[in-house]
Design a protein around this nucleic acid. Structure first.
Lengths: 290, 290
DNA sequence: GCGGGCTGTGAAGATCCTGTGACGATTTCT
DNA sequence: AGAAATCGTCACAGGATCTTCACAGCCCGC
């Protein structure tokens, strides 16, 4: 049951540009009739989907890179709440639709509070399930469609989302996918400091565990390539204890300030200078178990 | 009924780091009992909210700058669908929860497809409505384009939480994480005196043990950096036996006061100085209290 | 005016954080 | 299948930051 979906994972849930990726959803249920009807419907919609019958460990779900998950809590047994909480914590971007038998208000509230996005009571019409999943997924996605393909410039580098590549004077930096996603994300937030956790969750799609150094490592790789291609600029700035900030900063300015070349009367425009500068949860409801 | 909500959201109760803006929701319904219970609940949660009884034109809703809207389609009559569609089109970021009487699957599907985020069938428990609204709002758009954090100014310094840094005329103070958190906290409580214990517990997250001097040390570091970058101002004021207060105070004023009487050879002993300072402080306290 | 407690200050040591190179696992390409 | 490219994890080293400590100066009540 840990088998992972083999299809390419290009459906990277939250790439900064958010490709118009295929929807991928999973249904965790045992009600064969329900599953059958729903599957058929999903097929017709062309949504990539899979059915899970056993209580998949929350971690395994993470590996599936889903857009949404429809789950009958009954399948999970007594640890349903714990499972739900863990899953929601790990994948804040995953759409979770609980579709289960009769429940109390308190149960529904609890589920929603834990992070579920919707709660449908069986018996229900598959069409409604679909509609609710769609609704959940719709809200999950950023509208900033791929269309805005205007290249971003910063210092010497040009970031072209349409090419998934960054360039310095038409020379590609040969960024890998992750590297590109990273620079795109950073550049999109130019000026602002992005915390590691945010970078991680937006690039990897799930929440970062303490001690993970992936972000740092990719920042380093990115810095190397940037440095090699555009040595007179610094782009990624470290904010100790917080994260990183993207801003093109020329290194030339300073050296010029220091050694005033009397022999060569160069008129330095103020561009560089200014460039530098610009650069409760109330628990009144009883939480009874299912 | 187009009156806009006047209360500002700046009452960000969140700690120094969090920019959790106030939730603002509206309820469009006529069921007085339902409304009453729901309102009471919303009050207790501290959510800014308002009740609408008549079919507000979609455009008017736009002006309300809501986070979410709970609506009974029955109030809207025959043009409910059209209204819903228009609203969803105009405000894709607005959370819309339909809460209405018995309906068919087809109706629910239609509503959700048009852009509603959830659909609750009356009669329902207000707690569930709240939970679902929360769920919808939680999933609201991510901070890719959010520039909502407006910089705070005090004297010469500008505190930008998006950069985790304070500036004086575009020159960074190079505050460390803790230092920044401290100045942010102090500035947010401008005018008020914050006790050490409170500062400590809000910055460190746990209660301060007696004798801990961490707060003092950081106040000192902060003062040093502020002093160096903005010498003509005093920002952090000590309140003996209590804690600290943040308030930009120009030092120029005093020098003017001092040089007024050249004829009378007054010996300025320390008493007078403190006297002066005290009155000024008092004056400021009063004004701040307003 | 005196004394005790509170605050300012400087520095040293403990801690935590980031940069870096390398390695094994996995995926993709040939 | 074999090779190449990518990815994610580790351990280590160098720094930056935080905490603690001792001492000096200041404030307030007596």
């Amino acid at each position: 049951m840990t088998e992972s979906i083999t299809a390419r994972d290009e459906a990277a849930p939250s790439g900064p540009g958010g490709a118009t990726s295929q929807l991928r959803i999973a249904v965790l249920d045992r009600d064969s009739g329900f599953i059958q009807v729903l599957s058929k419907r999903l097929d017709r919609l062309g949504w990539e989907h899979r059915v899970l019958a056993s209580p998949v460990p929350a971690d395994a779900v993470v590996a599936m890179r889903l857009s949404a998950l429809v789950v009958d809590l009954a399948v999970l047994g007594p640890q349903a709440w714990e499972w739900l909480e863990r899953l929601c914590g790990a994948l804040p971007d995953l759409g979770i639709v609980v579709c289960t038998g009769p429940s109390t208000v308190a149960q529904r509230v609890r589920g929603l509070r834990l992070g579920a996005d919707d709660w449908i009571t069986k018996p229900c019409h598959p069409e409604e399930v679909i509609a609710r999943v769609q609704s959940v997924v719709r809200r999950r996605r950023r509208p900033s469609g791929r269309t805005e393909s205007k290249p971003v410039m910063a210092g010497d580098v040009e970031i072209r989302s349409d090419r998934f590549q960054a360039f310095v004077e038409d020379a590609s930096l040969d960024l890998t996918r992750r590297e590109f996603e990273l620079i795109e994300l950073l550049a999109a937030a130019e000026g602002r400091v992005l915390e590691r956790e945010e970078i991680y969750s937006r690039l990897w799609g799930y929440t970062m565990v303490r001690g993970d150094r992936s972000v740092d490592v990719f920042v380093r790789k990115l810095r190397q390539k940037l440095e090699k291609a555009s040595p007179r600029w610094r782009y990624i700035h470290t904010h100790f204890g917080i994260g990183y900030r993207f801003a093109a900063e020329s290194l030339d300015v300073e050296s010029v300030d220091v050694e005033i070349p009397p022999s060569v009367p160069v008129a330095w425009d103020a561009r560089d200078q200014s460039e530098l500068a610009r650069t409760q949860e109330d628990r009144e409801l009883t939480t009874d178990a299912l």
